[in-house]
């Protein structure tokens, strides 16, 4: 990101002050807070923005970084068993990408790699020792798994123009989306150069009963365990009373 920042800063300085917008591109989300409640089944988030003049727009939404272990199965005595494993850190828990045109037509490979745009540019870090020869296969498996869970929408949504300078895109947060702070970054590019960018946050939290349960289970695991037992005892006693009457 630093390079992109420097870029846009330089560009802003170079821009004539007659520009209508303070920034070449401004974006916002339909909502900045997503509450995962007991009835949460996924949610569409709309990102909309205004760009100055012409140019292409790339939108990248990233979830909080996580650590993940990828394991490869091997057949041992007829049974499929986990054998080799590789642990990765810096794995975005969510990743969605949208652009006005195919990425390769908009920007050069260096820029995409630098800003981790596109599935090939995601830079997971190997934790501990890992066989470099197997790295690609494990990395691809990790991306594939997240794609199947709807957590990675790579090369998915198009960015559409609403009016001359207005654009919008949608991305879908599935029920299994991790909680944490997400960021949506919008790049405006002209002739392969970054003209401007804007970042807007998205907070995904658990809410209501679900949140209370989750937080309690993780913050006070022992008390949670005792409470779980107590609830079960009350439920068991109550059902026993019902039986006795019957």
């Amino acid at each position: 990101m630093p390079r992109a920042l420097a870029f846009s800063f330089l560009f802003a300085l170079a821009m004539p002050f007659s520009a209508a917008l303070a920034q070449p591109v401004v974006a916002d989300l339909s909502s900045h807070k997503v509450a995962i409640t007991s009835s949460f089944t996924g949610e569409d988030i709309v990102l909309f923005g205004v760009r100055e003049g012409s140019g292409d727009v790339i939108v990248v939404v990233r979830g909080p970084p996580q650590t993940r272990v990828v394991r490869q199965k091997e057949r041992i005595a007829g049974i499929w068993v986990n054998r080799d494993e590789m642990a990765f850190s810096n794995v975005p828990g969510y990743y969605a990408l949208a652009a006005t045109r195919p990425l390769e037509e908009i920007a050069d490979a260096d820029f995409l790699a630098e800003n981790q745009i596109g599935p090939d540019s995601l830079q997971f870090q190997i934790m501990g020792e890992g066989d470099p020869a197997a790295f690609e296969a494990f990395r691809a498996a990790l991306i594939r798994s997240h794609q199947q869970d709807g957590l990675y929408a790579v090369g998915a949504g198009p960015v559409g123009y609403v009016g001359g300078t207005l654009f919008r895109t949608e991305f879908y947060l599935p029920a299994g989306a991790p909680v944490g702070t997400y960021s949506a970054v919008v790049y405006l590019l002209r002739d392969g150069e970054v003209v401007g960018f804007d970042t807007t946050p998205l907070f995904v939290t658990k809410a209501g009963l679900g949140r209370a349960v989750y937080d309690y289970a993780h913050d006070q695991p022992a008390a949670y365990g005792f409470l779980a037992v107590l609830l079960a005892l009350i439920a068991g006693w109550a059902s026993s009373m019902v039986y006795r009457r019957a």
């Binding site: 272990v69 394991r71 490869q72 199965k73 007829g78 499929w80 934790m127 498996a141 798994s145």
Partner: peptide, 13 residues
């Protein structure tokens, strides 16, 4: 016993 569709599994550390 059946050959899994994907040889790889992903889980939290």
């Amino acid at each position: 016993l059946m050959t899994p569709q994907d040889m790889f599994t992903v889980s939290p550390l």
